[in-house]
Amino acid sequence: MLSSYLTLAAILFCIGLYGALVKRNAVVVLFSIELMLNAVNLNLIAFAKYGAAPSLTGHIFTLFTISVAAAEAAVGVAVLIALFRSRGTVNIDEFDEMRR
């Protein structure tokens, strides 16, 4: 059963990775990052139950990941709103000041 959970997490992670690499809308890139974080959480919980030494440490780590993801989403959305105010777009191809 453990390998099924790990495979599902791998599928989710790869879908998220593809979205983060391909999508041009910055909000959608944030969605994809959330997908990848969720895949990691599934791995942590699966190992907490089916690992060699089951324990609650995986649950604690998942709680930490969820809180850090919440902070990341809040700051990400705030940065997007600030960028949208100054540039009028959320297309990540246009945010390239650092490259010039």
Binding site: N25, V27, L30, F31, A73, G76, V77, L80, I81, F84, T89, V90
Partner: peptide, 9 residues
Amino acid sequence: MIFGIMMTE
């Protein structure tokens, strides 16, 4: 995220 969408495009 819905707020983020509403505040942008």
